[in-house]
């Protein structure tokens, strides 16, 4: 294993405590707690239907929790509107890609800066010099982000005509355009081939190291998670069953049981049980 473990040395960016949500009589997530430090990649894994995406939805304001708190540094975000949470510095991608189909690749990224351009609409309508410079900078940073994720040559493509793997990368670039402090990635490697996954791993690593973000990722590919994450939380039936380093998680009997118990995910369960970090 070669995961960076500066665990504990940096302050926590995102602090989630005792999140609980019930849908009707069903408790979808119960007493979920998690911390994401700066410059660190935290993993969230668990069998299908464990409630991982629901946790993301709770943290980003898509759902309002029945109990629990979400803090970004000193700011409480619990129960705030999704757009308010996004403006405070929590950005995310989606499991089922949600790009803006009517916009080009570049426009998708620029759209993410919309709220930062509030109050300038009239000025930019008439291309007043006051905002011209700002607009130019915005365009530059959007292009820089596209370059960062390797999409520079696709600027003018319609976003949804991109290959699947590139669409996921575009979602990352778009999320980063909001200048987040924490980035939540929902199965970023799904549907990618091994080469693409390696590239993605490098990308996520540099989001952390170069841009200084805290990253929380949901992923089913165990090799990907074990290689990348310093700390992993395992969710099953809406509850946290294990927290720890990749090595600890692999050996945890509860985790092995959760994965082997779920029939459909036997393959992944084996990976969780025996997955070795073979390359980085």
């Amino acid at each position: 294993m070669n995961s960076t473990s500066n665990h504990g040395s940096s302050e926590f960016l995102l602090k989630v405590e005792n999140l609980t949500i019930r849908f009707g009589g069903l408790v979808a997530v119960q007493n979920f707690s998690l911390r994401v430090p700066a410059r660190q990649i935290v993993g969230l894994i668990g069998p299908n239907g464990a409630g991982k995406t629901t946790v993301f939805n709770l943290m980003t304001g898509v759902y309002k929790p029945n109990q629990g708190t979400v803090y970004l540094q000193e700011t409480e975000l619990t129960g705030r509107g999704a757009h308010v949470i996004a403006r405070s510095g929590v950005a995310r991608t989606f499991q089922n890609i949600r790009l803006f189909a009517g916009l080009t690749v570049l426009e998708n990224v620029i759209a993410a800066a919309s709220w930062q351009r509030r109050g300038q609409s009239v000025a930019s309508l008439f291309a007043l010099p006051a905002v011209a410079l700002k607009e130019k900078k915005l365009l530059e940073s959007a292009r820089k982000l596209l370059e960062f994720v390797g999409l520079s040559s696709y600027e003018n493509w319609e976003a949804t005509s991109l290959p699947y793997g590139l669409q996921r990368k575009l979602e990352i670039a778009r999320a980063m355009m909001t200048n987040p402090k924490v980035l939540l990635l929902d199965e970023p490697a799904a549907g990618m081939n091994p080469t693409e996954k390696d590239e993605l791993a490098k990308l996520v690593r540099s989001i952390c190291d170069v841009h200084g973000l805290g990253v929380l990722l949901i992923e089913h590919d165990m090799k990907f998670v074990m290689n990348l994450c310093a700390n992993i939380t395992v969710l099953d039936h809406g509850e946290v069953i294990a927290v720890g380093s990749p090595l600890e998680i692999q050996k945890n009997p509860k985790v092995i049981e959760a994965y082997l118990g779920a029939e459909e995910t036997t393959g992944e369960g084996t990976a969780a049980a025996s997955g070795q970090g073979s390359h980085s």
Partner: peptide, 30 residues
């Protein structure tokens, strides 16, 4: 004016909202 409006922050926010409300909100768009 409408052609230019599309490129403004509000114009982009409107188009993003049309295409995907949940994604738009996750990017700070009201």
């Amino acid at each position: 004016a409408l052609a230019r409006f599309r490129r403004t922050g509000l114009g982009m926010a409107i188009q993003a909202t049309r295409d995907d409300e949940i994604a738009a909100r996750s990017l700070g768009i009201s």
